[in-house]
Design a protein around this nucleic acid. Structure first.
Lengths: 234, 234
DNA sequence: ACCTCTTTGTTTGAATTCAAACATACTTGC
DNA sequence: GCAAGTATGTTTGAATTCAAACAAAGAGGT
């Protein structure tokens, strides 16, 4: 754990990722680094399979995934796992819990690869600094947009989950993913078990449906790669 | 449709509701009215069963429900209805779509009673007014908190929906509602069909489960009133 | 009071999903 | 190269849900 005290190699490394994060949209490289210093961002690392955050924890920081991949999950007492979202470099998480004082995490975050995380204190982010730096305004607007986009993402997940049949959940998710990536040929960020946990169905039943869909010619898939036939989205 | 040009009877009528809205937390009555004028809030009315907003629409306004009740729903081509949330006076909606330029509504909002709605332009809300009124800062912080709470609300819904069995979905939702209302005896804002659409199950199957739960002594219910037995939350 | 419409609970057979196996291919580490 | 572990697809019977129909109770209007 260290602070962004000065601009060094390690900051440069993250800059390319942070630039892609909607939180820093419209800011120059220098403004991003100045902001991180102004806000007092910190870096932490987590090894693969470690919990980055655990349900029951409290946090007042919005976390940015700088490298690696992770999953936001919910686990119940019987070991059932619900995958809320996947996290890629540039994604942020824990922001709603950080924005509400003393909110207890209802989800856990698990590293699926070795991860580096930039933590930004939410209070310092939304409280105007005394210097009233000009980009701070921009940051706050970006934060609102980021929240809105996360809400839409959950909206989408609910849309998929609201379908009654495994087949329809799959097609709903895969169509949305194709739309997001702008191509009928795309990779998903899940393996089979994770996809099943994301859609809240049995992996076995899902495998059966994927096989059927392939036999019917609606799609082709190999591991995490999918190719939808143009009429699969009807 | 009219604007908040001056403080009049009609504003007073809404004030009691708006005061309860987290968006205006920490603002005095006068500050709320000043803000609404500053931002240029407008009022619209919708009769029961009318669409307040429809999927496919665009809006740049966050909407506050001032009176009446409504449902945020998704409908697919086959008439399947997914109830995203219910809306009570003081609740707000459409805010993620208003916060993202040109975002198309993926949900509809239907009045379940006659409704009055206060519409607030999102751009004017998040853009500092030239007067830089002191409460504007507070409003923006409130907006961020409001977004965060909405995200947690969707999180909860996903938690309920992620349960595989109707019974578990019911218990998950009812326990959460009891916790929210701070009592094992409470009313829900849904009738049976709406609750089924909220949990994404068949009303018939849900009715059967509710009967079973009553026979097992885990709860009592009559219409929208529920009483959980203390061991129902295990 | 009467009729109609709405809401809720119940029943039934068909369709779907669950849950637990198992087989196969592929990785990973030694 | 080999062994152990992981990921994926398949199969099976049991459990659950769907979908449609119907009955009963209640609300609302005339």
């Amino acid at each position: 754990m260290f602070e962004f005290k000065q601009r060094g190699e390690i900051l440069e490394k993250f800059l390319n990722v942070l630039k892609k994060c909607p939180l820093f949209a419209g800011l120059s490289d220098d403004e991003i680094l100045t902001s991180l210093k102004c806000i007092g961002a910190k870096v932490r690392k987590n090894a693969k399979n470690q919990y980055i955050l655990q349900a029951g924890d409290c946090t007042d920081c919005i976390s940015l995934l700088a490298s690696g991949t992770a999953l936001v999950i919910q686990e119940d007492l019987w070991g059932n796992r619900n995958v809320m979202t996947n996290l890629m470099p540039g994604d942020y998480f824990a922001e709603p819990f950080a924005a509400i004082p003393d909110a207890v995490l209802s989800v856990s975050v698990v590293a699926t690869e070795n991860c580096e995380i930039v933590e930004i204190n939410m209070n310092r982010l939304i409280t105007m600094c005394s210097a009233a730096c000009s980009h701070h305004n921009r940051l706050i607007k970006n934060l609102i947009t980021a929240f809105a986009q996360k809400t839409l993402l959950f909206n989408e997940k609910i849309t998929h989950m609201s379908k009654r049949k495994t087949r329809d959940k799959l097609l709903s998710y895969l169509s949305a993913e194709a739309a997001r990536q702008g191509s009928l040929s795309f990779d998903i960020p899940f393996d089979r078990q994770q996809l099943a946990d994301f859609l809240c169905v049995e992996r076995a039943a899902m495998s059966v449906e994927l096989s059927k869909l392939q036999k019917e010619g609606l799609l082709k898939t190999f591991h995490s790669h999918f190719e939808l036939s143009p009429n699969a989205t009807n």
